[in-house]
């Protein structure tokens, strides 16, 4: 894609950080960057960030981060509006990229799930009418996808820096095993435990295996994975197919289905 951040323009690029259905944790990652974020704030114009700002501008935006997934009609309206208003739209976090935990609903009877929360659906505001929960790229074109529950701050910084410097952004695209091995962590899979490391996009510096907890897959799968073989390895470690499939459903069920795993 063409980098819309023109060097000669003296005007700072307009950046927005927006949210639809989600826990807001992915936004918090950005605000918690603190010192390094303050350095960047001199280079950008943060025109909309409803979580931390009182006055928020409508578009056009040069760069818009969207956190959360489409779970209501209101979400979809907002998303479509931001897409139209933005030159670059980034799906920020696993809800936005893969559907995450709210997306588990797809694999259950949706009416039953809704009834558990909204006993009397007639009382709902019109915009809050539930939709089948779906990642944002099911509805609009996404320029960059950065998964993670939550994503790592370095991925935000790298993307913004690369765009500001007119570079082609690089998004980390290696399995968790890479960082795990580089950190010389004893392999949990080899130890007969449960770990989804070989399937999952890293970038987390093997956070969970580093504290002796198998990867649960919060970054979602890589495109080029050998799922049948990893499932065989997990089964050899005594983890039932049913449990493995539940794990795959947790963060990125839709994506795993697209990669050929039958989850329903």
């Amino acid at each position: 894609m063409n980098n819309p951040f023109k060097k000669e323009e003296k005007i700072k690029p307009k950046v927005a950080i927006h949210s639809i259905t989600g826990c807001a944790g992915c936004q918090l990652v950005i605000y918690f960057i603190k010192d390094k974020l303050l350095e960047l704030l001199g280079e950008i114009d943060l025109v909309a960030a409803p979580m931390i700002k009182g006055k928020n501008d409508e578009g056009p935006y040069d760069l818009c981060f969207v956190e959360g997934l489409v779970a209501s009609e209101e979400d979809l309206e907002h998303l479509k509006k931001w897409r139209e208003q933005s030159k670059v739209l980034v799906a920020w976090g696993t809800c936005a990229t893969h559907g995450n935990v709210p997306g588990i609903k797809i694999f259950m009877d949706e009416k039953t799930v809704e009834a558990a929360v909204y006993k009397n659906r007639t009382g709902l505001k019109k915009g809050l009418k539930p939709l089948t929960p779906t990642p944002i790229e099911e509805h609009v074109k996404v320029d960059f996808s950065i998964s993670g529950c939550p994503p790592e701050e370095i991925e935000f910084l790298r993307l913004v820096k690369h765009l500001l410097l007119q570079m082609n952004p690089v998004i980390y695209n290696e399995p968790v095993c890479v960082e795990c091995t580089k950190r010389e962590i004893k392999c949990l899979l080899e130890d007969g435990k449960e770990c989804l490391g070989p399937l999952i996009r890293g970038g987390c510096d093997a956070l969970c295996p580093g504290v002796n907890h198998g990867c649960t897959g919060c970054h979602g799968p890589l495109e080029s994975v050998n799922i049948p073989q990893v499932m065989k390895l997990l089964e050899a470690n005594g983890i039932s197919e049913k449990l493995v499939k539940q794990r795959l459903q947790k963060y990125a069920g839709l994506k795993f289905e697209k990669l050929g795993v039958k989850l329903k």
């Binding site: 290696e174 095993c177 994975v225």
Partner: peptide
């Protein structure tokens, strides 16, 4: 190749 999960451990190590 059918057994390879592309984890890259062989090259890193």
């Amino acid at each position: 190749n059918d057994l390879c999960v592309s984890c890259q451990r062989c090259t890193i190590l």
